[in-house]
Amino acid sequence: MGIFQSKKFILLEILLCVILGVGIVCYTQSNQEIIQKQNTAFYYVNISGKQRALAQRIVFLSQIISTNYILKRNNQNVFLELRYCINELSSIHQILQNFVVSTIVGREGHSTLNDVYFGSGGLMFKIEKFLENANKMFYLTNFKDVLQVNQTLLQQLEGDDGLLTSLELATLSQQIYGQTFLREQERNIEWLLYLGLLICGVQVILLLWNVVRR
């Protein structure tokens, strides 16, 4: 009977050690996953904030182009930078739009970012219209048309409920989403830690119980 009880005790200890080992592996992997997702969240916040600087730069460059038309200066270098800013803004917009579609849409807990892009915020439409007008700068030859497009871009950016306001709201929403998501992950990590501590406590109790029985 004593041998049988001893074998049961050893098997139970082995089982608890296996569970604890699996828990440690899961804890380590979860920590690494949190770090990766934290970096990803920072990346989306950073490029979201970069949109505002690019949009402002595009309007500024369109103003320089308008001025250069008056002064009859060469716009070649300005057009090169404008093309770069447009492509960069378009690329970032596509990345963030895909992120919202794949991660946010349909999840009520993260509806703010969804609303900024596809709802009342209308950021998707605003950026696409802004880029469409910015691209017109490459094909216009009449100063009045250039000036009109410049004024349109400025109004789109800084007007009431303009692109600038929506971009600031989008960056804030990205920050809130990242913080909420990371808190959820950290809560799961805490549960794993508590489970590991519980298993350790059970092992200590079993060891003490076995000593007392002897």
Rank of each mutant, 00 (worst) to 15 (best):
N210Q: 15
Q148W: 05
M1V: 01
C26G: 01
Q179K: 08
L198K: 05
R83V: 00
T67M: 09
M1E: 05
R57Q: 12
T40G: 03
S111H: 11
Y84E: 05
Q36C: 00
N142C: 06
F138W: 11
S91L: 10
I58A: 00
V25Y: 13
Y84D: 11
I58N: 01
L206W: 03
F4M: 05
I86T: 00
R107Y: 12
I3G: 00
E88P: 06
G122P: 02
I10S: 02
N68A: 04
Q76Y: 09
G109D: 14
N75V: 07
A41I: 03
T67Q: 12
Y43D: 09
E168A: 03
L193H: 09
L163Y: 08
V78D: 05
N142A: 06
Q151D: 11
E128R: 12
N74Y: 06
L207W: 12
C26D: 11
D115P: 01
H110P: 01
L20I: 09
I35W: 01
E108Y: 11
K144H: 11
V25H: 10
L80H: 03
E13K: 07
Q38M: 07
L208R: 07
Q32N: 14
I70L: 12
V149Q: 04
Q63S: 14
A53V: 09
F143S: 12
T103E: 15
R57S: 13
L198R: 13
E186F: 08
F60P: 00
N188I: 07
Q151G: 02
G178S: 15
R214G: 13
E158D: 15
Y27N: 08
V202Y: 09
F125G: 01
N188H: 13
I19T: 10
L192M: 15
F130C: 04
A53G: 01
N98G: 08
L20E: 10
V59E: 02
I70C: 02
Q179T: 10
S166Q: 14
H93T: 08
